[in-house]
Design a protein around this nucleic acid. Structure first.
Lengths: 231, 231
DNA sequence: GAATGAGCTTGATCAAGGTCAAGACTAAGA
DNA sequence: TCTTAGTCTTGACCTTGATCAAGCTCATTC
């Protein structure tokens, strides 16, 4: 639910990793580690929300589905991100692992009691919530007002900002359908878009699950809607 | 920024209005009332965020703009809703009055100090933030995966749930362009859609700024994507 | 190493919704 | 009452991206 994707948030996350005992384990107490295989479900829409999670390793997709199967992915959560925070009531979405994933699970009430008492927990919680909101707002602009090519640029720029590079290449763990459902496009349009970006020299695709960004500046301009002739 | 639109949130808002001294004035201290004329700006993208607001009367549109003028409206805020809450840094969007509007303005630091101390303020704040997130998530699904007619249904259902009826009719204070920029459509598509909904008996439009919902159930089914032949 | 199948790419076609343009309606003011 | 300007509606046409349909690639299994 509350993935951190913006530049500011991913900075916070890195800080957090640096002194992991201080920040990651302390504020919400001790949690239980869960391991998930690809496509395994962490929780489903409608479940009672008894826990929340922090990703240790891997990637999770969180989404909502319409009765006829149309799916909107709300976030891809990466190591350090929190998800599954609910105020009251049931889960509003489903969360599934994309690759082998490890999460730390905390009981929800574990947080409620501490949040009241500890200012640091409170601030941490606020930062996560505000980060989630900020994120969602950027997502809204993208979905509502960007063209297919701009959406792809936006996606890749975010990915670049939120993940570490692996000798010049970014991992693309999610498949084309996941990307499509995140960006409000069809799978085919995503595929065609990647091909075009490759042809135009924005990126290179060593294989389907790896991207090299060849011209970040131009890609960023595309993402911001500053490239009028983006086919 | 943090409009309440869901059924749950608008219930909270009504409760709040019922005992206004207890809930509205107490939790964030005393604020200053600001009055805005139609199209007047409350704050702009990039401004330093020194205050946050609660709507007393009227309607505010909050939006983000792209460099070339494309606009995405993030929320329409109604009486009781909070907006302009930022964690740190500058405003991420612009807020303008749609009609004559009165807001109560609170200094941001006024909240920070109290939030730490007072559990009720803290809970209130959390409820607002979680409400905003929940809202944004529904907005994402709508923008990413619904057809034009479904979007209009979704909009009208929300409107019906969040506003009081005025002898059988709902006020539609925002113009067609505002609705379009909220739903990720063009003005013309909104207009055509309203005409079609009228012809098909879902709604009636006494005038351009008033709607009567003729068949709520069918409209709700449309909004949920359960009407396959929605032209 | 052939067979299978899942995911990805590409092409051809189609339709939803955008764009451009002309009118209609309404409210405000002269 | 007539004018003017802004908003809304409607029509005609066009573009973007979806859909349908083959192939292709690569990994897995026999």
């Amino acid at each position: 639910m509350l993935a951190m994707h913006s530049a500011a948030e991913s900075k916070a996350r890195r800080t957090n990793e640096a002194n992991s005992k201080e920040e990651t384990e302390a504020p919400f107490g001790l949690g239980v580690v869960l391991r998930l295989k690809p496509n395994e479900t962490l929780f489903s829409e409608g479940d009672a929300a008894a826990s929340f999670y922090q990703i240790k390793e891997g990637v999770i997709r969180s989404f909502r589905m319409m009765i006829d199967g149309r799916r909107q992915i709300i976030s891809f959560s990466q190591p350090g991100d929190y998800l599954g925070l609910e105020w009251e009531g049931d889960r509003a979405m489903t969360a599934e692992a994309i690759i082998d994933t490890a999460v730390v699970s905390y009981p929800r009430r574990h947080l409620e009691g501490r949040a009241t008492a500890d200012v640091r927990v409170q601030n941490r919680m606020m930062a996560v919530l505000f980060g989630g909101l900020h994120n969602a707002q950027e997502h809204l602009v993208m979905l509502g007002r960007q063209t297919a090519m701009e959406k792809l640029g936006w996606f890749l720029v975010r990915l670049a900002r939120s993940s570490r590079m692996n000798n010049g290449a970014l991992a693309l763990p999610m498949n084309r359908t996941d990307i499509a459902d995140y960006l409000g496009l069809s799978m085919e349009t995503v595929s065609r878009g990647f091909s075009l970006l490759t042809r135009e020299g924005y990126i290179a695709l060593p294989d389907a699950h790896q991207v090299c960004i060849r011209n970040f500046k131009r890609l960023d301009a595309l993402a911001r809607g500053e490239v009028p002739t983006a086919h």
